[in-house]
Design a protein around this nucleic acid. Structure first.
Lengths: 233, 233
DNA sequence: ACCTGAACACCGTTCAAGT
DNA sequence: ACCTGAACACCGTTCAAGT
């Protein structure tokens, strides 16, 4: 009945590595290498330990568990996002750059897609980004809860766009599916809905990267238009 | 080098259960019970087998692997979505109802959040829903690729909103974290960003379910406004 | 302070064997 | 046609023991 205490990597001091042995940074860097090269499912404590020339269980000295290690890795990559200071650019440009920046980071590190929403984004890099977005929206004129809502709308759209995007291309890539056989499956599965099939055919006939870009730009423009309208009235 | 053939549960006939033994339906229903009661991570082939009074490995006669079993379960729940026929309602109402319907389904079955984007949504229920959305947007006036983009914008927003929503409350619920200790962590982690902390305080001070509802409604209205504007001009 | 190895309690899946 | 059990190759994590 008594509620458990919530704890977090971000409010606990890392154990201090004087000079010897492993450091938390080293571990996170090695984890990122595995994640980038082989994906989320490929990261195991044993494999990570081996890569560092240590036993798997040694890692537990530096990190409470795998979940917290992933929190550290998750935050790390948001450091790559370059966001224009909302002071100089207009809020709409800031939102645009923010959304595209997030998307690029996720496409560069597809494994994050599997972590989004699973962990609190309260690491330093996540917070830095959140603060810049908040500042931009505040300058735009949003106040109080609407400041949150507006920011949530943008990030929700980005996450919801990019998660399936990543899943499709990384599944297709790592399993090397034949594109034509995928189309064939869709044709027969959706045989009852000819218009849906027609849409899928046109969609897949073009350069996939370009279509996805346009898809993203279209939706983002909708969200930003909606926000703008909420400011005017 | 030769690309692998893509296969799918949806285009393969289920092995026919004459009268005896397990059926695929039975397995999927039992899986859904475990998923609803205990969540995605709690579903294992062994546990599912035991629930059905069978060996874990018996399941592999009816289902190729766990992934395909999850595809079946994933599609099943979209059957609960009731969508107004776009013929009678206006497209904006259809979009609104569609988005809220999706959200409700996900909140009722939080485990789906972990599957979104991970599998092709080409089961019968998913397709039925997709077709209704497509029809609504077509009637609204969208044509060609914009029909896809408009639909993708709506679903992206819904998924991106609901995934973190589900993650937070289900993590908080199942681990029974003390709400005050979570606020405390945020306060110290975000100590450098007083405005961000202030936002979080206001956000968490209110009835969480109501705030999330408003958050969702706000963002959805933005997306729909944006779509509307793209129709007019 | 840091690391190790053995051990525990799990996984998904394959496959020869049974009925 | 359907199910079983043993087995394989893994997991994350704990903990007493080492240095």
């Amino acid at each position: 009945m008594t509620a458990k205490q919530f704890t977090s990597v971000w409010t606990r001091e890392p154990r201090q590595g004087k000079t010897q042995g492993l450091t938390r940074d080293q571990i996170v860097r090695a984890a990122l290498e595995i994640l980038d090269a082989e994906g989320l499912d490929a990261l195991s404590m044993r494999k990570l330990g081996a890569k560092l020339g240590a036993g798997a269980t040694s890692l537990y000295w530096h990190v409470a568990n795998k979940e917290e290690l992933l929190e550290l890795a998750f935050d790390e990559i948001w450091g790559e996002m370059s966001i224009p200071d909302p002071g100089s650019a207009g809020w709409r440009d800031t939102g645009w750059a923010f959304a595209h920046g997030m998307r690029k980071v996720i496409l560069r590190h597809p494994w994050v897609a599997g972590l989004i929403g699973r962990m609190p984004a309260i690491g330093p890099n996540s917070l830095r980004a959140a603060e810049l977005l908040r500042k931009g929206l505040h300058q735009a004129g949003f106040r109080g809860l609407e400041e949150d809502y507006a920011g949530a709308a943008i990030t929700a759209f980005v996450f919801g766009s990019v998660i399936p995007e990543v899943a499709w291309f990384s599944a297709a890539a790592e399993k090397e599916y034949d594109a034509e056989s995928m189309r064939e499956i869709i044709r027969t599965a959706a045989a009852d809905y000819p218009e849906l099939v027609a849409r899928a055919e046109e969609y897949t006939a073009r350069d996939p990267a370009a279509v996805r870009e346009m898809n993203f730009a279209f939706g983002l423009a909708c969200v930003l238009d909606g926000l703008e309208r909420r400011l005017v009235t």
